[in-house]
Amino acid sequence: MSNTATENEHDPLIPHGHQQTGRVGDRIFRGFASGAGIFVLVIMGAIGAFLIWKSIPSLQADSTNFFTTTEWFPDDNPAVFGIAALLFGTVISATIAMVLAVPVGIGIALFIAFYAPRPVASTLAFITDLLAAVPSIIFGLWGLAVLMPNMQGTAQWLNDYLGWIPIFDNTLGIYSKSLFIAGVVLAIMVLPTVSAVTREVFIQVPSEHVEGALALGATRWEMVRMAVFPFSLPGMISAAMLGLGRALGETIAVALILSAAFTINWHITEPGGNSFAANIALKWNEAGPIGLSALIASGLVLFLITLVVNMLARWIVSRRKDFSGAN
């Protein structure tokens, strides 16, 4: 680890008599602390670097376009594989999750911050946060065994009554293992992220603005629109993007629910679809050397996408205030 304790100015808070013993200890301790801080940067850099390094063999071996191919035969000779289908499935399932989770998450946050009876509000917040503690493997199992049979009717209804919208049209008559169901499970999984971060932002709305709106004769909803939403907009966008980052990178639940297929199928209620993360988990143990490298390459793309999404989210909100979302 590199040592950054070089810019060690005199600390005016340390009295002179103790400089002898204090200085050395301080320098060492400070070195450890900075080292730990820099370790975070090093890790983030190393993730990128090692993934790039180890994806090179497969990218060189690929006989087709890595970005537009919808097949995955990296261990064939010549190797044929690309991420188009993965990108499609990842983006579509995450989009479905966002469409469902963002409004509901904002609703929950509003409920807890402004609507719920005060004595129980923090308990209700705790209960909704419990969703965040449920491991994704359990969401996957539940989605597969409990939710999927119950979503059949909804998917069929979408086909029967909204089938004229191409994405809801189901040409197979089979409604299970679809991107739609994966999206619904993802929505439930990112809901606590979206609602917890949004709630933090709502709580920061100064009560002067809330009272200012009410004193003008606004109803509660008008107060929300007048004082809460404009003030919280960056935070809400950021919450949605943090949720999006989660949804894009979720592996196990998606891997369990989708019947992995390397196609781009806009009929989202039909079986099929795939995602970066699910594909890595599913293909990992049957992959040869180039296969592993190809999976690493797809993981690199996923890493970069989530990196951009998360950096944007953090950047938007850091211009206003510190929201961590780490818990």
Binding site: M44, I280, A313
Partner: peptide, 28 residues
């Protein structure tokens, strides 16, 4: 500067997908 970057990347690190963490340790 340095502290700002560390703070920022700690936040970004929260969003690293778990499968990417696994991939990284596998390669490394």
């Amino acid at each position: 500067r340095m502290a700002k970057w560390v703070s920022f990347f700690v936040d970004v690190m929260t969003g690293v997908p778990s499968i990417v963490a696994g991939l990284f340790i596998y390669t490394f």
